[in-house]
């Protein structure tokens, strides 16, 4: 089904229900974020670590004059860390939280493609029981017989979460 739909979607570029997604690789899985949220992609550079930050916040970095926190998505997903290589990039995204919007960088293994997807064909996530935290996954989509995991970055990198982690760490430390 997908290739037909994809073809249609590609023709109908201005169709209201289609959105472009930037996809990236993480631990062999392909993830997608809405391209309108993406502010830029840049190579890995040194970051300045922040005291008392949760483990997955690698630090902050200078992005055209703004101080932007950098988050390691592998660590965020509790995946095994790998050394950063030549394809490692930082995807800079804008996340909207209840109060304001923030710019944040996510470290991923590599960027992949840009796809146009029909939002109506995004499938909800199957039930996993309580074992996997899935509220930051918007749904699943299929492109060329590959599964694509669409992320809801607002939930993925909520600062409340960061604060929660920080509090937890502080509690452990004492």
């Amino acid at each position: 089904m997908s290739s037909d739909n994809m073809a249609n979607a590609n023709v109908d570029l201005l169709h209201a229900d289609t959105n472009q997604f930037l996809t990236f690789m993480l631990n062999g899985e392909e993830y997608g974020v809405e391209i309108l949220r993406v502010q830029g992609i840049q190579g890995w550079d040194t970051v300045t670590p922040i005291p008392k930050a949760p483990e997955y916040v690698l630090g902050v970095m200078n992005l055209r004059g703004a101080i932007v926190p950098i988050i390691d998505l592998r660590k965020r997903f509790h995946m095994e860390s790998i050394p950063f290589g030549p394809t490692t990039v930082i995807i800079v995204v804008k996340v909207e939280n209840s109060d304001k919007s923030r710019t944040i960088g996510m470290v991923v293994d590599a960027v992949s493609e840009v796809y146009r997807l029909d939002e109506n064909l995004v499938q909800p996530l199957p039930e996993f029981g309580g074992n996997i935290s899935t509220d930051f996954i918007k749904g699943l989509s299929t492109v060329d017989e590959k599964m694509l995991i669409l992320l809801d970055i607002d939930r993925l990198i909520s600062i409340r979460d960061v604060e929660g982690e920080a509090a937890k760490l502080a509690a452990q430390a004492s």
Partner: peptide, 13 residues
């Protein structure tokens, strides 16, 4: 520059 703008206030900074 503010840390708060994109992150959050950090005590001691």
């Amino acid at each position: 520059k503010s840390l708060e703008e994109n992150y959050m206030p950090v005590q001691g900074l």
